[in-house]
Structures are given as structure tokens and as C-alpha cells.
Nucleic acid binder design. Structure first.
Lengths: 194, 194
DNA sequence: TTGGAATTAGTACTTGGTATTAAACCTAGT
DNA sequence: ACTAGGTTTAATACCAAGTACTAATTCCAA
């Protein structure tokens, strides 16, 4: 599935943040574009080459800056994304995400998945969550694969505010729903600055 | 100072364990031998080349072989707690918690702190969050110390449902508020079972 | 002084890139 | 219809940091 440039570049960034080990070669196959295109993308997005990425990741390890790396991680793999429209991510719940006592996933992981997705679906690099109402409909257990679907409310697409609805399911059964009122910080094409 | 082979190789191993970022070139200067000698040394000692070393160090980071502790951890340090009444936790925001683009903390970390606190304040080992409405009142930056205060709504202390209000502040200024509707799974003092 | 270990040198080849130039391909606008 | 611009590919030269291999040189001790 050939994606438009802008979308491809966003996904490229997200992908490499999760997996910095991918070579341009591998990326070109993933996006079914040429290696040169990937290199142009990295250039535009100021994403360094594989070796530089590994160097910084490794140095983070050596300096013990790892402590909370996963905290900043985008929770869940974003597998589909249409800017300002909809997006989908998958999050595999492991033992690490649940209360030992009852094996039920801690709420903030489900929230993190949904929130990350809401941020990602916005066509704005600096989007922020302003307000949110969420429901934990059914408990989620370790081993469950949570599929989160985000949909942008078209009619809410005003200058600065946007409503994103997220529904998370396990085996087609709703486990979580959330409304995310997002704030777009850029009002135009200022995305490239900074 | 020219050291004998055996000693040099021993030092080589120690050196690279501490600092895997050194190239053969740098090492050859350090030991004042030729690059080829260093390569023979690495070969004999089965020390991989720079890139391989960085790859493994970096993968250690990514695979969370260093992380572990935090995932299930309660986010923020709970410094005060009165069961079924109120609780307080402190969370220091670091670079790891913010968007690189604008230095603002990702929402799900603030949520995680508040949610963890709401769960902790309940006098029930198996309390779950059912529903929540939250406001991100003001952006939080790296370096900020977020103080979250949870208060149990006394009149809501019914059999199974409880409302917990959380207000998070930075320097006495409110940055986040949340209402957490909690579900108690045990209806009495069965908390110790399981 | 001579023989084997240790060291150094030199060459060809590999990966995963950068940098640059140029061609080809769409696609929207007047 | 046709051109201009953005986008994508291609092609080439070059680099860093190596491996793999061969060969020459140096050292040092029996």
C-alpha cells in the first residue's frame, strides 16, 4: 500500500523510534519505495542513519539513561494511519502490564495506547490532549491483543480543537472507549520550524 | 608504554566493556600498536567489531533488558496515604516523558500517576478504574515535579462504586485534574484472599 | 644466529551509509 | 494541451570501519 509522502514520513519516524535497527534497505521494502526515497525522507525529517541511531541508543544504555525509556514509548504498534481521519494500533498485553493480584491490565496502559494513537492521528506534530473521558468497559488480561481504533470527528475539525474517538477491542469485544479533545498547536505550516 | 601481548589483550577486554564505542583506530593509538595488531587481538579474544558491539548494547536497551522495573511500577512515589480517604504522590518529569518537539509531557504519564494513585487510595487490593474524566489544564515540562493529590468522595463510598478526585499541581498551580470512578471487587474485608 | 612468535603492511571486498547530479514520472494549473 | 513543480528513481563517486587473507618485517630468546 503506497502512502503519500507526508504520511510515510510520519510513520517512518514512529517506526524508527520503536525500532532503530532498520536499514534504509529494509525500510524501502517496508514502504515499497526506493532506497533513495527513504534517504530523502530521513534527510527531510532529520533522522540520522542506522549507525548514528545505534550509537545514541547504545550511549543511552551506557549512561544508565534507560531507566524509563519505555515510558516515552509509543504504546502499541501503529499499523494503519490516515491523517486527520483514522488510525489503528495494536498492543499486546503482557504480564508486565497487569496487576499481579488479579491479572487485569492497569488502566493507564490502555489509556496510553489510546492517547498515543489520538496524538498520532492528528495532522500536527505538536498536538496535545486537553480533555478526555474514558470508559474501561471490560477488564483486559495478559495475552490479550488490544486493537485500538481512532476516528477523528470531522465536524469537530476546527482551527485549534479536534475530537478524536477511540474504541479498543479484544476479539471484537469492546474493552475501552475514550473521547479525546485535542489541541493543535500549529496554525498552518509552521511544522518545520524548531 | 608498550605492554606485552597478554596484558594488552586483557586491558583491551576491560576497556571495551566499559566503553564499547572505541574504534580499532582509537584503540591502536591507546596501546600504541598498529591497527592490525588490535584486530588480531580482537580476533583472538572473540571481541566483535564496533558496529556489532553497539548493536548488542542498543538491543539490550530496546529489549528492555535494562528497564524491567518500571512497567508495572506505580508511577510516581506515593508519599502519603490514608486508605479510603486521601493520598499524595510525587512524580518527577524527565526528558524521557516529554515530546522532543516541544518538551511537553505526554498526557498518559500524568494520567498514569493519577490513576495509580486512585487505585492505591482504595482500600481494596483489586480495585479497578471503570470510568474517568480528565483535564490537562496546563502543559508540564521536563524538570517539573508533579504533586498529585487524591481524595475519596465520602458520600460515594457505596458497596461497589467509589469516586476519587485527583488534582495534580506543579508549584501549587493545577496542571491536571481527574475524576476516577472506581470499582471495588471485594465487598468487605476479603482483600487478603488471593 | 636463527626460528617461531608477534607485529606490521598491503590488498581486495563488504555494509551502510553521504553527497551530488541527472533523469523520469506524475499531476495540477492556466 | 502543455508546462512547471514536486516527487521519485537512478547512477556515480566517495567514506568509515570493518573482514579476510597474504606477505613482509621485527624481535627476542635458546
Amino acid at each position: 500500500m503506497r502512502r503519500p509522502k507526508k504520511e510515510r514520513q510520519r510513520l517512518l519516524g514512529l517506526l524508527l523510534e520503536e525500532n532503530p535497527f532498520l536499514t534504509d534497505e529494509a525500510l524501502s521494502e517496508h514502504f515499497t519505495v526506493s532506497v533513495q526515497t527513504i534517504r530523502l525522507d530521513r534527510l527531510e525529517c532529520r533522522i540520522p542513519e542506522l549507525r548514528e541511531r545505534l550509537k545514541t541508543v547504545a550511549s543511552r544504555t551506557m549512561n544508565g539513561e534507560v531507566k524509563s525509556l519505555h515510558l516515552d514509548e509509543i504504546i502499541g504498534d501503529i499499523v494503519d494511519l490516515e491523517l486527520d481521519a483514522k488510525a489503528l494500533s495494536i498492543f499486546d498485553v503482557t504480564e508486565d502490564h497487569v496487576f499481579q493480584r488479579n491479572g487485569i491490565a492497569r488502566g493507564h496502559h490502555l489509556f496510553a495506547q489510546a492517547n498515543s494513537l489520538a496524538v498520532a492521528v492528528m495532522d500536527d506534530d505538536l498536538a496535545l490532549t486537553v480533555k478526555s473521558t474514558i470508559h474501561f468497559v471490560r477488564p483486559v488480561k495478559a495475552g490479550d491483543r488490544v486493537v485500538a481504533r481512532a476516528e477523528v470527528e470531522k465536524e469537530s475539525l476546527t482551527a485549534n480543537r479536534t475530537l478524536v474517538n477511540v474504541v479498543s477491542t479484544v476479539h471484537d469485544e469492546t474493552v475501552f472507549t475514550g473521547e479525546f479533545y485535542m489541541y493543535r498547536t500549529t496554525d498552518g505550516k509552521l511544522g518545520e520550524s524548531l
